[in-house]
Structures are given as structure tokens and as C-alpha cells.
Design a protein around this nucleic acid. Structure first.
Lengths: 231, 231
DNA sequence: ATGTCAATGTCGCGA
DNA sequence: TCGCGACGTTGACAT
């Protein structure tokens, strides 16, 4: 990845026409050839960009362009759509390149968030006398979905998944290992909760002393709805 | 804007839960307090982010976290939604800060793009014998919407607007001034084309020898549709 | 590869 | 400020 801070103007011609007047911006060149033009505000969306696959050609400006203060021209083209992005650079204030390597990518879950909310509200599904400590209990290696206490006041760490696979058990195992080293929490009981738990995952979990809990999403949602109707 | 290249893991808890395993990434801190986490590929969307308004707290890791290799902790919170983003930094490979100032912002037009496409296809609307040279003809100060030639082979530069205002005439004037200094193009005739041209803009344009052309968008679209039905 | 649908959507408009 | 619709949408999942 190459990072350039430059005074530049930008023109885009494709599905629409767009122009960025002269200003100082960040130009981010990614390894796949894509280019992002970012300002110092707004949301995560760049002011302008070119998505991969695309190719960037850096060229010298014509005498005329040089007269207008342009020192460098970047022409970004996309083969498929014939989109065109032109960056007219007037002054480079910073330029650095960095080796990042491929990214393992984002792990996310949307239903998990709802399940988590529901289970936090219906915490006794874990067993009688259980009480919620907090959701997203943060540890050094990431947030544990739910931290609770059982009837005897012992810590219970819950890992929630839509589909309970071996990965989830491994994840919970790492959390438990870490949390059991914290004298304020130890001993911590693990609960692997999911709508559906694969046999392999169940075997692994139980072998490690982790309790498995199959959640009925619809029933939980139903109770949730009933509550909403009552209050 | 502060740019940090760092080996880090990232956790997000908000509408959903998400986790980024340890890897080298770009952390972009914008002036408004927002944070973007970018990898070296993919589209313009960051791997993870926190939108403004939000506040970033940098803190020292606990002994336990330090044991896991974490050297720095960034905790990003959003007041309104209680979203939480935690960046666990293991190693900083680059760190630089830059003053960008406020950005004048993007100028774009959706209907203009369609008008441009239609006029390029129906170029004789400019007058008999006119031929298209190209759309988005690039100059040092930005792209001219349409460059064409008249029946005598002379250059014609067209500025397109949905609503023809004085701004558009000024813009075209700048293009014409520049293009008329190019011996390959000069002399260049200007045409100010819009669905609707304000009297003030028409007066200014004609005073400068720029021809005004009112476009019937619906009729042009109708011809376009007819073509589509024929072929 | 293609189509459909949700999104931590974001963004811009108008009431 | 809120509601609504478009987006150079992007991204995930199903066919």
C-alpha cells in the first residue's frame, strides 16, 4: 500500500461526472491497483475512488498542464466499464509505501447480535439462578459474548453462534484459558450456545468441560415479543 | 489526519459483533475523531470503522494484555449508539500526521451524465454536420463535457447542465480560454446546453459569443428509447 | 457466473 | 430533525 498526501484535483467520468477542486487529500493506492481519495472528515466513504480491477498510469503533465501547477498526472482506468479517474497532482507532501500482506478478513454475525440481546434478557435459559454480568465482556483477545454468574455466583462465559461449529468451541476455549488466569473471575464455566450445534463441535466442547446449549431462536423471539406487548 | 501502519487486531461491538484477527493494516484517524481500518485490497469500504461523532482513547495495556504482545490499546466509543471499537496494537510500523484542512467537497451530477450520453448520441442537435470527437475531453482544469466538430470541421466545446446558471457559463468560459490556446483545437466555439437556461446566464453567454442550446430531455430520451426498440 | 437482498450501509433531498 | 429514496452502492448468500 502506498500512501500519498498531496494537493490535487480529481476528475471522474463514468456512471456520473464528478469533480474535486484543488485541495490537500490522502491518496491511498492499494496492492490490487485500486485508488481511494480521502478527505479529513466525513464517513468511511472516500470522496472518490476506483474499484479493482483497474490500472493506474502515472505520467508527466503537458507544458500547458505544468503551467497550471500540475506536477504529476495519475490516470486510473477500469477495463470493464471504461470508467476513468484522473488525479492532477500539484504538490506531494508525503509519500510512503508499506507491505501489508493479505488480510485474514472480517468475522461478523448479524443474527448473533440479536441472539445475544435475547439471551441477555432471558439469562435464566442458562439455568436457574443465573444472572447477567455483561454482554461483550472485553478480554485481551477479543470480547466474550456474554459473561454471567450461576446460582452459586461462579462465572459463566457464553460463546454464541448461529451455527455451532468447531471454530466457535476453539474460540471459547481460548477465552476460558485467558479468563481462568484472572483471579477475580476464576473458575469460569464455559457455555457454547447456538441455534444448531454440529455433533463434532458438541463432542469437542463436552470433552473440554464446556456445556452445550441449543437455543430456540423463534421461541426466544416470541417471549421477547410477548414482553414488548406487555410493556 | 494521522496515518498508522500497525500489526493489530480489532474488535467491534455494536449493531453486530465483528472481529479482525492479528494482521498488518492501515489505521486512518480523521480530524473529526473517526477511525478507519483498511487492508491492502477489497473495495473502498474499510474492514472496520467508527463513524463520527466518536472519541478515541489511547491507553496502556494491562500486564496480561502486554503478555499477549499488545503494546497499545485504542478504544473508540460513540456517544449516541454506545458502539464500541477496540484496536489492540502489537507493533507500529509507521506513524505520521498531516494537516489537510476542510475539503471543498464533491461536485457531481446524475442527470447531467444521462444528458451527456444522449447528446453524444444525438450530436446533430448541435447543428447539421456536427460530429462527436469525444465525451469528457480532459483539460488541465477538468473535463469538458463534450468536444465536437461543426460542419466546417471547427472545434465545438459543449458545457452541459440540467439548469443553466451563470456558474456554468463561467466554467465553459474558463475551458474555452484554455482550449483556444491549444493550436490543435483553436478556434473553439462554445455551446452552453441545458434543459433550462436562466435569462442572466443566456445574456452572459451570448455576450461572450457562446451559443445557447435548450435541450428537451424527454424528447431526447424518447428518441433514445425508439432506437433501443429498433435495435 | 448470475440474481437477489441486507447493510454498523452512506448520502442527499424535502417536509 | 426526521423520513424517504438513490447509490459509481458494497457484500453475502442462493441458484
Amino acid at each position: 500500500m502506498r500512501l500519498v498526501i498531496a494537493k490535487c484535483s480529481v476528475d471522474y467520468a463514468g456512471r456520473l461526472s464528478a469533480h474535486l477542486p484543488l485541495a490537500t487529500r490522502l491518496l491511498m493506492l492499494k496492492a490490487d491497483g485500486s485508488l481511494l481519495v480521502h478527505s479529513d472528515g466525513g464517513s468511511y466513504k472516500p470522496l472518490n475512488w476506483m474499484s479493482p480491477p483497474c490500472t493506474i498510469a502515472m505520467s508527466e503533465p503537458s507544458d500547458e498542464q505544468r503551467e497550471f501547477g500540475i506536477t504529476e498526472l495519475w490516470t486510473v482506468t477500469q477495463g470493464k466499464t471504461a470508467d476513468l479517474l484522473i488525479v492532477s497532482i500539484h504538490e506531494v507532501l508525503h509519500d510512503s509505501a508499506h507491505e501489508l500482506g493479505i488480510d485474514p478478513g472480517l468475522q461478523k454475525d448479524g443474527v448473533e447480535a440479536h441472539l445475544q440481546k435475547l439471551l441477555a434478557e432471558q439469562i435464566e435459559l442458562l439455568g436457574e439462578g443465573h444472572r447477567l454480568v455483561r454482554r461483550e465482556y472485553m478480554t485481551a483477545i477479543g470480547p466474550v459474548d456474554i459473561l454471567a454468574t450461576d446460582a452459586a455466583g461462579r462465572s459463566v462465559a457464553v460463546e454464541l453462534k448461529r451455527r455451532g461449529d468447531i471454530d466457535g468451541v476453539e474460540q471459547l476455549t481460548r477465552y476460558l484459558e485467558l479468563m481462568n488466569r484472572d483471579p477475580r473471575l476464576a473458575p469460569v464455566q464455559g457455555v457454547f450456545a447456538a441455534q444448531e450445534i454440529k455433533p463434532q463441535a458438541r463432542t469437542l466442547a463436552e470433552d473440554r468441560g464446556i456445556r452445550c446449549l441449543v437455543l430456540d431462536y423463534d421461541a426466544m423471539r416470541g417471549i421477547d415479543n410477548a414482553d414488548e406487548r406487555l410493556f
